[in-house]
Design a protein around this nucleic acid. Structure first.
Lengths: 197, 197
DNA sequence: AAAAACCGGTTGAACGCTCAGTCTAAAAAC
DNA sequence: GTTTTTAGACTGAGCGTTCAACCGGTTTTT
């Protein structure tokens, strides 16, 4: 692994766990073994490191999502959105540090003044929201999902799923054990044919 | 309003909008008109200001929630949880700055090392989660809500509702218009008698 | 009644420290 | 021989916190 990559990896972890402002270049230098000068040789400033991380995250998320779409076999739209939700949970576990970073306020605040940052964030979020929407549209076509605004429902689903992941990272409660129930509740609110009890 | 209250109000806004670390005492001094020394006369340090805000927030949330419970009339558990969710949205609007603050990572990180902070946070969250759970239990008794783990469902509902509020504050999408659909989806996933379509 | 002591609140300059970023000259890696 | 990396000294700004002094009003002493 090149020195630049080493710096990027360590920065991802530090920014995710401690925050952007709370991580100093001196600390980044110490944990990577790279001199401070080396860091500024590869990146023009601290913010540039952050944007590079975001760019990598974006690439990785889209890459993983595309692979998921290729590999997956879905027998209905409802089935597809369920697996899309599961995939989100899976990815949040696989890319824990990056998701931690995305759940911080800093990227969203930066996005308000930095178009590059904004573009990365939107690309990442759109990836999931569009994925959810496609599944809903498919489900409405094949009759597994009831009729409603696909766009708005996709947004709500996304906010729900993301809310649960966030809930888990803040771990005030043990939210890890809620996955199964959560999926069941999602199914109920989406499906057309309802089980009469 | 006393100088101490002025400081507390301004700090709430600044900590919420800019973050704890990103807000300097100098800025707090300038916006309140209080000298820096005055701030440290009333609070022993910066963290003490933060904890005071959290204490006030806790009191206010519990006070408002109690009033809501007293004033409300609910004809079923399902009806009660719907109004509890609405109440959460209402309060998030009324106490926008405090909710913004609670949605930051800082209070949760502080809670991990500071028991006082932790206690405030838990009291605030328990207030809502317990409220949701009571409604679910009532609904299961009166037959409006289907049988499932009341505790876990309450947690999921909370993470969902909170996720939507958070989504709104980050405003990547226009999440304000999702309230109606969100309520409809919640009803569907909770209710016992289902509409056959 | 005048003077002195006392009080909570307030002031802003000053202190010690950390930080992002710069710079240099030399060494190592390719 | 060009690119990358090193160690560290340095700058200038910003930070939280401290502190002696000050203010206006009340109480105590003379």
């Amino acid at each position: 692994m090149s020195k630049k990559e080493t710096i990027l990896h360590a920065a991802t972890r530090l920014f995710a766990e401690k925050g952007f402002k709370e991580t100093s270049i001196a600390e980044l230098s110490k944990t990577t073994g790279a001199a401070e000068g080396t860091i500024f040789y590869h990146f023009k400033n601290k913010e540039d490191i952050f944007l590079s991380i975001l760019e990598d995250t974006r690439k990785r998320v889209i890459e993983e999502f595309d692979r998921y779409l290729e590999e997956g076999e879905f027998d209905s739209g409802l089935n597809m959105i369920e697996s899309a939700i599961s995939f989100y949970f899976y990815l949040a576990g696989m890319m824990e540090e990056q998701f931690l970073l995305l759940h911080r306020r800093h990227p969203h605040e930066l996005a308000e003044v930095n178009p590059v940052c904004r573009e990365h964030l939107e690309a990442i979020y759109n990836c999931f929201v569009n994925g959810f929407e496609q599944a809903i549209l498919l489900g409405q076509k094949d009759g597994s999902i009831r009729t409603m605004s696909s766009k708005r429902t996709a947004l709500i689903i996304f906010s729900m799923v993301d809310g649960l992941v966030r809930f888990k990272t803040y771990n005030l409660y043990n939210a890890g054990a809620l996955h199964k129930e959560f999926m069941e509740l999602c199914r109920r609110m989406l499906q057309k044919k309802q089980i009469q009890e």
